Computed example of a mutant assay.
Amino acid sequence: METKREKFYMMNSMLCLLKVVEGKRTTVEMRDEKEVTGVIKHVDGYMNISMEDVVFKSLTGKKKFDKFFVNGKTIRYVHIPDEINMKSAMEAKLKEMCTYTASMRVRQEIKDQAWAKLKQKERRAKAEIKKERK
């Protein structure tokens, strides 16, 4: 579950493009001249990336990992696969995120209305009981 702050970052930065890369094989270059190549499984609102089937390259050599976590603060560059049209992908992801946010808002409004009706019924029932007692 993403926090409101994470959603804000996703909607107002290039992070929405990284969400499009989820499930694809790509390379993440890190600030300390290291490189991670693998399948991106999850990107959060702080640009932290979870990857699988990873090859980690450093000055000392290569290592393979089943799972790997990259802290967003250490990322220099993320390669976007050639098959992704960045403009249309970002537009689609933003539209999806806006639709989800709007649907959640509508769901909350429906819940609030149902709760208000329930409270109103309880008040009426209590008022009727008071009338009967008099």
Rank of each mutant, 00 (worst) to 15 (best):
G38L: 01
H79G: 08
K67T: 07
I110N: 11
I110G: 07
V70K: 00
I129L: 13
K62S: 14
A125Q: 12
M30H: 07
D66V: 12
A125L: 12
K93A: 00
V20G: 00
M104L: 09
D44S: 03
Y77S: 06
M47P: 05
E52C: 07
F65Q: 03
T74L: 09
D44G: 03
P81A: 02
L17S: 02
K119V: 11
G23Y: 04
E2K: 15
E122I: 11
I84S: 00
E35S: 05
K117W: 14
D66F: 10
M51D: 02
T74A: 12
V55K: 03
L59Q: 13
V70A: 01
K87T: 09
K119G: 06
I84V: 04
K87E: 07
M104F: 06
F68D: 01
K62P: 13
L17H: 01
A125D: 14
I75N: 01
L18Q: 01
N48E: 04
A92D: 04
N85R: 08
M86F: 04
F69M: 08
I110L: 13
M90N: 02
N85E: 06
D53S: 11
I129N: 12
F68V: 02
A102Y: 11
K34H: 10
R5G: 13
V78C: 02
R25Q: 14
T99W: 05
K111D: 12
K130T: 11
A125H: 12
A92K: 10
G23K: 08
S103C: 09
F69T: 06
I80C: 01
V70N: 01
M51Y: 01
M47D: 13
L15V: 02
Y46K: 07
K4G: 09
F68S: 00
G23E: 03
E6C: 08
G61M: 03
A125E: 13
V70Q: 01
Q113M: 13
A127R: 09
D82G: 10
V39G: 03
M1S: 15
L94N: 02
Q108I: 04
K67C: 09
A114M: 13
E6A: 10
G72Q: 02
K73Y: 13
L94V: 04
I75L: 02
K64T: 14
T27K: 05
M10Y: 09
G61I: 04
C16Q: 05
K93N: 00
K111M: 12
T99E: 04
F56S: 05
K24R: 13
K57C: 12
Q113G: 11
M10I: 12
Y77R: 06
M1E: 13
Q113D: 15
S58L: 08
K7V: 10
K4S: 10
Q108G: 05
S58F: 07
M14L: 15
D82I: 08
M1K: 15
K73V: 11
I84D: 00
L118Y: 15
E29D: 13
V28T: 02
I110Q: 11
I40D: 00
E128T: 12
E109P: 05
V70I: 03
R124T: 12
Q120E: 14
R123L: 11
I110H: 10
D53K: 10
V54F: 03
M1D: 11
L59N: 13
G38R: 00
